[in-house]
Simulated scan of single mutants.
Amino acid sequence: MSSKTDTREQILEAAMNRIKHYGYGKTTMSEIAKDCCMSAGNIYRFFSSKIDIAEAMARKFNAELYQAYSEIARSDGSPSARLRRVFHYNLSQTYDAIQREAKILEVAEVLGDERPLFMNEGLAQERIYLCTILQDGVDRGEFAPIADCNYTAEMVQSALMKFRFPQLFTRLTLPKLRRELNGALDILIAGLQHGVEKTPEDEH
Rank of each mutant, 00 (worst) to 15 (best):
L181H: 01
A190H: 06
I104C: 04
L105E: 00
A97W: 01
R18F: 10
L174R: 13
S70P: 02
R164Y: 15
F46K: 01
Q125Y: 03
V138N: 04
K34E: 11
Y44R: 09
C37N: 14
R100Q: 06
F47N: 04
F61P: 04
G77A: 01
A108P: 01
F143V: 06
K26S: 13
G23C: 07
I187G: 08
D76M: 10
E13P: 00
F165K: 05
R100M: 06
L168D: 08
M38S: 04
L134R: 04
I133M: 02
D139N: 15
D148H: 15
A81P: 00
G183A: 14
A153G: 03
S48L: 05
Y44C: 10
E106R: 05
M57H: 00
K176A: 13
Q99P: 00
V156D: 02
E197I: 15
G25H: 15
A159T: 09
L174S: 09
Q93A: 11
C36A: 10
A184G: 05
L111V: 13
E55K: 07
A184E: 12
E203P: 03
T5M: 06
R18Q: 04
A159F: 10
C36E: 11
S78A: 05
S39C: 04
K4W: 09
A14F: 03
R178N: 11
T27Y: 05
L111D: 10
S39N: 10
E154N: 15
E13M: 05
V196D: 15
G122F: 05
A153H: 01
V107E: 02
S49P: 06
Q93W: 06
V86Y: 02
D35R: 10
F169Q: 14
L123K: 14
C37L: 12
K34H: 12
K34D: 13
F118R: 02
Y129N: 03
S80I: 08
G77D: 01
F143M: 10
T28N: 02
T199H: 04
G122S: 09
R45V: 07
A73Y: 00
E13Q: 11
L192G: 00
I189H: 08
A147I: 03
F46E: 00
T5P: 03
H21K: 12
A190Y: 03
F143I: 04
D35Y: 14
G112I: 12
L130K: 02
G195I: 08
K34Q: 12
C149W: 08
F47T: 02
Q193S: 04
Q67W: 07
R100A: 08
N90Y: 06
Y22R: 12
M155H: 08
M161T: 12
T5K: 12
H88P: 04
Q93L: 09
R171N: 10
R115P: 01
V110H: 07
T132L: 07
A40C: 08
I146L: 15
V86S: 05
